[in-house]
Design a protein around this nucleic acid. Structure first.
Lengths: 214, 214
DNA sequence: GTTAGCATGTAAGGAGTTACATGATTTT
DNA sequence: AAAATCATGTAACTCCTTACATGCTAAC
């Protein structure tokens, strides 16, 4: 999975689009958005902020840090915010739903900022992602069947599991696409339990109905 | 998540441990082993082979390429094989089931060569991986509940989906661990297909009945 | 006779990591 | 007084990618 083309930059712009922040706080939020729990390092973050400033997309102001209990001190933090050019650029990123945007990591970041996009773009990206995945499924299924005799059980199992995961993600996307189209899906069949019981209404509700097989 | 520490090297050693091969063929096999369908480039592969030769773990012989229909020509291919030192080193890699080995990509590669390892090591790695994942689950679940009010629906959904995937992988590991212990799992809890249908002794037999679905 | 696949490589560079360096503030 | 956490950065390095360069063979 690494068709990576700078996942950091759009993620930073996206977060700052919501609200200004300083570097340290950005990092914590990024670790959530960047999906996979990886701990982003300062060695990546601060240089990236620098180049974004250089390009004129964000600007940083030293804030004397208004501590809740006041006094003079506390180390001055640099609070970054999107400039006008930065907002424009970010909108451009969101609108460009080209092939790059349905690669693994890029997709995650795009998806995380879906709330800032229009429904049309959301659909384009979801469907692009879906066809990307089914395309993969075909390739892998074929090589699976071609080579299964020559593989040991563990390699086989790893591949079966991989396939299953992708199949599941396709169904997830199906739910999201239906939802985006305003189709209210039938009650989920029960295997896909929500992390939490209650759910706000109007929320995207992927009816990831997946039937057990076998 | 990239706690990557050279996933290529062990993968190459592992494949050559099974049978000697030349670079071009290695690449194709690697794309399967390396799980995620990514197309590994020659720009990575050949330099890596070079350094492995330099370290004395593999050796390459120019073979005039015995074409099936014979004649003189065809470009000479360099067929690589593990040296004695290389075999030893690879066994060392397999045996070292330290924390590094239960990170995402490393785990996949380790798992792919489980057939070359002893049952004890397999169990250590599977269990290490499992506790790594549950640890993550806790962290993410907590931040999920702490911050859910401040997040939009899409970010929320992305995180819910991520959590679900990890939960599923834990159940998958549970199946494998049971299997490794020779426990015949009671009917799986319902959402995951049986990892094991019938049971040969000692041998893991993933029930890879992968039916095509319309 | 030209496209597709086999086969091996090099050079430049991108996106990120680790390890280091520094210092203030809060908690124990 | 020590330890944790907040806060900002730099330098060196790693692993891998893209784009290039070369040439042979099989199939259409």
């Amino acid at each position: 999975m690494r068709g990576r083309s700078d996942v950091l930059e759009p993620a930073i712009l996206g977060l700052l689009h919501e609200t200004p922040m300083h570097g340290y706080e950005l990092r914590k939020r990024l670790n959530l958005v960047l999906g996979s729990f990886r701990a982003l390092s300062y060695g990546s973050l601060y240089p990236c902020l620098k180049t974004l400033v250089a390009r004129g997309w964000i600007a940083g102001e030293e804030s004397p840090a208004a501590p809740p209990h006041a006094l003079s001190g506390k180390r001055a933090r640099i609070v970054y915010h999107l400039t006008a050019a930065g907002k424009e650029h970010f909108q451009g990123i969101l609108a460009s739903s080209g092939p790059a945007s349905w690669e693994d990591e890029n997709f995650d970041v795009r998806f995380a900022f879906f709330a800032q996009t229009d429904a049309e773009t959301r659909l384009r990206i979801l469907e692009g992602r879906r066809s990307r995945l089914t395309e993969r499924l075909e390739t892998v299924r074929q090589s699976f069947h071609r080579t299964r005799e020559r593989m040991d059980e563990y390699t086989l199992e790893l591949q079966r599991h991989g396939l299953e995961q992708v199949e599941r993600e396709v169904r997830w996307l199906d739910g999201l696409i239906d939802n985006e189209r305003g189709v209210r899906p039938a009650r989920p069949t029960g295997t896909d339990r929500p992390v939490d019981a209650d759910h706000a209404e109007g929320a995207p509700r992927p009816g990831s109905e997946l039937k057990e097989r076998g």
